[in-house]
């Protein structure tokens, strides 16, 4: 059963994930790896593929990170649901890991999730990178 993917939207309705990908000028190779992981998540969810998602992240109990070993250590952060926990995922924040430290801090993903829980309109259907 395929899952539904969503991206968090900022207060102007812009997709924060595609904005992040653009700001970071992701290489084509990285975008290929990123989309491959997103496709796996959408088609099979998180249980079939071992270690597809890491988490929940320490101190951010609902937040997972997608691990991509590309030209850079991309770690987009997401949560299950948050409305239909077994049927959807929402990408909350783009991040890159440098020296074992996530940038930006994952607490921003938790903040985005809380905003979304208070306003369902703050997400849009996932767009490919």
């Amino acid at each position: 059963m395929p899952f539904e993917l969503y991206d968090f939207a900022d207060n102007k309705g812009r997709n924060v994930m595609t904005l992040w990908a653009k700001e970071e000028a992701l290489s084509k190779r990285d975008r290929g790896q990123l989309n491959q992981k997103m496709d796996m998540l959408q088609i099979n969810g998180m249980t079939l593929h071992p270690h597809l998602l890491a988490g929940p992240i320490n101190k951010q109990k609902h937040i997972y990170k997608l691990v991509i070993h590309g030209d850079r250590m991309l770690r987009p952060m997401l949560c299950r649901g948050p409305f239909r926990m077994d049927a959807e995922f929402t990408l909350l924040l783009g991040a890159i890991e440098i020296n074992f430290k996530l940038n930006p801090d994952p607490s921003a993903a938790t903040t985005h999730r809380e905003i979304l829980l208070g306003n369902r309109e703050r997400r849009i259907t996932h767009e490919r990178y």
Binding site: K28, G32, Q36
Partner: peptide, 13 residues
Amino acid sequence: EYSEGYAESFLNA
């Protein structure tokens, strides 16, 4: 370049 990134990630998975 994109296809190599995608295909190699798929292979590992």
